[in-house]
Simulated scan of single mutants.
Amino acid sequence: MPIASNPLVYVVDDDTLIRSTLESILKVRNYRVSTFGSGIQFLQAKFEDDASCILLDMTMPGLSGLDVLKTLKERGCAIPVIFLTAHTDIVLSVLAMKAGAEDFLSKPIQTEQLLSSIEKAHEHCLGNLQSRALLDDLRCSYAALSDTELQVFNRVIRGRLNKQIAYELGYAERTIKAYRSSIMEKMKVNNLANLVLCSIQLGLLE
Rank of each mutant, 00 (worst) to 15 (best):
E112M: 06
E74I: 03
E123S: 07
Q130S: 02
H122N: 10
K107M: 11
N128V: 09
H122D: 07
K98C: 06
E123Y: 08
L114F: 07
T88D: 11
I118G: 04
I109F: 05
E119A: 08
H124V: 04
S116H: 11
S93K: 15
A78L: 14
I79E: 02
P108C: 02
A121I: 02
K73M: 07
L114E: 05
R75K: 12
S106D: 01
L84D: 09
K120H: 12
M97E: 09
V91Q: 03
I82T: 14
F104W: 04
H124F: 05
R75I: 00
A121M: 01
F104M: 04
M97P: 07
L135K: 15
C125Y: 03
I82S: 13
V81L: 05
F83K: 01
A78V: 09
A101I: 01
I118W: 03
D89I: 06
T85A: 06
I109G: 02
D103Q: 10
M97F: 15
L134M: 05
I82D: 12
K120C: 06
F104K: 06
T111A: 10
E119P: 00
L126D: 00
G76F: 11
D103T: 10
P80G: 12
K73R: 14
V81E: 05
A133I: 05
L135E: 14
G76L: 10
E74H: 00
D89K: 05
E123L: 13
H124I: 02
I82P: 08
L129Q: 04
D89E: 11
M97C: 07
L95M: 13
C77P: 03
T85H: 08
Q130G: 00
S131V: 07
G76H: 11
L135W: 07
H122T: 03
Q113R: 15
S93R: 15
L115Y: 10
S131W: 03
H122S: 06
L115D: 08
K107V: 10
P80K: 14
E74P: 00
L84F: 14
V94Y: 09
D103A: 15
F104H: 08
S116R: 09
F83T: 01
T85D: 07
I82H: 13
K120N: 13
R132A: 15
A121N: 02
D89Q: 11
S116N: 13
V91F: 00
S116Y: 08
A86W: 11
S116E: 13
L134N: 07
T111P: 07
I79F: 01
S93V: 03
H87T: 15
S117T: 04
K73G: 09
K107R: 15
R75Q: 12
H122Y: 12
P80H: 12
G76K: 10
D103N: 15
L115C: 07
A133C: 01
G100I: 06
F83A: 00
E74K: 08
L134G: 00
I82E: 11
G127I: 06
P108L: 01
E119K: 14
V81A: 05
P80R: 13
I118P: 03
R132K: 15
L105I: 15
G127A: 11
C77H: 04
E123R: 09
L114W: 06
